[in-house]
Each structure stands twice: as C-alpha cells, then as structure tokens.
C-alpha cells in the first residue's frame, strides 16, 4: 500500500515537472524547429543576450517586482498590525475586503483596471501595472504577516512594557525581530506574485512598455523560436529560487516563535 502510494506520488511529480523539463531542454537544442535528435547548444541563450526587446521586458519585470515587493510589504505589514493587534469596529469587514483581489478572476480585475484607468486618465503602462500588482500583492502580504502575528503571542510586548519599554521600543526590540521571517517571506511572495503576473500586465501594457510574461505571450501567439524556451527557463528558475526562499522564511516551525 505504502509503495503504491509512493509510486503514485512519483507519477504526480513526473506529470508536474515533465513538461517543464522538456521545455527547458529544448532551449538547449540547436534546432530552431524543435527537431530531434537532441543537439546540445547554447545558441539560443546567446541569441537571447542580443534580443533588446526581451532584455528590456525582463528588466521591466524585475523592477516592477522589486517595487511591488517594497511597497506592498510596507503597506501590508502596517495593515496587518492594525488588523491583528488592535480591536475596532469593522475589523471583520476590512479583513473580508482583502479577498476580492485574490478571489475574483484576474481577467475581471484586469479588464476593470483597464476600463477605470482609461476613464480616469491614469492610462496604461508600467505605472498602471505597478498600481495593479501592488493591489494584488497587498492581501497576500497582510495574510502572511497576519499569520505571523497570530502565532506571536501578544504578552511578549506586554512583558517588554512591564520592564520599561515604550510601545515603540517594544515593537522594534521584540515584535519586529520575531516578525521578521514573516515579513521577509511576505516580501518574497509579493515579488513572485508580480514577477509571474501575466493577466493584469497584459491588459495594462502598451507596446514598448511590457513585462516578460506579456512579451512571451505575444511571441507564443505570433510564432517563436527556442529563444522563448531560454527566457522562459530563466524566468522559471528565478521564481523557483524566490519561492524556495519564501518557504525557508515563512514555513511553519521556522524561526517565527511559538511555544
């Protein structure tokens, strides 16, 4: 029974990783028509280095993700502190209001942003994408940091205050250090959300101001070469590294304290 279960798990993993591995391997195959047999070559990566459009889109993606992570983590952490450490009327409703960006299909959110930004003159472009990405990332940050706060006992701060800490000092000496893993985890998460975001970016992009996923999409639809495999592989590996970092920081039983 146990070995049967392990075989099944193995098959699930093959299903999840096989296409990714095939896709990555084809980036190292010399044939532009994906013809086999396999002929190892770094040609497509060299080609990629000279592709200004993709490189620029790549940098756009990275900057967008960095800014999204910084802004969403800062704002979301503050909100989490209010939502999990203070009691006030309307708290339940405010928590529920975090869900629409997560729960509503991105297609709807994205087109709504398109309509609204057009209507108000905010327009499209990287600035519009930043507004959208941060909004998508804030709920995740609030939930990750909020979970961290929940496992952090409130009496630690009280203990610090009983020993002479002002609330601000107690926050910086006790709460913040213990919350740091959650905050770093949340920032990595926000970074990944932005880096991988396609739908919202797609509706808010203008030619010349796109992100990598949008460029990849238009390439896939218009006809492509293994260059796209190369850049896709790079994007995939980058996300995996970021998410493994997140798992390292925010994983239950990590550095975040509970007794």
């Amino acid at each position: 029974m146990t070995s049967l279960a392990r075989i099944f798990l193995g098959l699930v993993l093959v299903f999840l990783y096989l296409p990714i591995v095939v896709m990555a391997a084809m980036g190292f195959n010399a044939s532009p028509l994906y013809a086999l047999p396999f002929d190892f070559s770094t040609h497509w990566y060299e080609e990629l280095a000279g592709n200004g459009r993709l490189i620029e889109a790549g940098w756009n993606s990275i900057w967008l993700a960095v800014l999204t992570a910084v802004i969403a983590t800062a704002l979301g952490t503050l909100a989490a502190l209010a939502l999990w450490r203070r009691t006030f009327r309307g708290r339940a409703i405010l928590r529920i209001l975090l869900l629409p960006p997560i729960a509503i299909p991105w297609l709807i959110t994205g087109t709504a942003m398109l309509v609204f930004f057009f209507w108000t003159g905010i327009g499209r472009g990287l600035h519009a994408m930043l507004i959208g990405h941060v909004a998508l990332a804030i709920p995740y940050v609030v939930l990750v940091v909020g979970t961290g706060l929940q496992t952090l006992r409130a009496d630690l701060e009280e203990a610090a205050m009983s020993l002479g800490s002002t609330p601000i000092h107690a926050f910086f000496r006790v709460t913040l250090p213990l919350l740091m893993p959650s905050i770093v985890g949340a920032a990595l998460f926000a970074f990944a959300v932005s880096l991988d975001q396609f739908v919202i970016s797609y509706f808010l992009s203008v030619p010349g101001m796109t992100t990598l996923p949008v460029e990849i999409y238009s390439a896939i639809r218009k006809g492509f070469t293994p260059e796209i495999n190369a850049i896709s592989t790079i994007l995939l590996v980058a996300s995996m590294i970021v998410i493994l970092g997140f798992a390292r920081f925010a994983r239950p039983g990590g550095i975040g304290e509970r007794s």
Binding site: R153, D155, L156, E158, A159, A160, P177, L178, E257, S259
Partner: peptide
C-alpha cells in the same frame, strides 16, 4: 510582572 505563559523573549 510574571506572566502565566512566562513571556520570555524567544530571540
């Protein structure tokens, strides 16, 4: 003050 859960700073 001594708290029921001790409230020692774990870090």
């Amino acid at each position: 003050m001594v708290f029921q859960s001790y409230a020692l700073f774990p870090h």
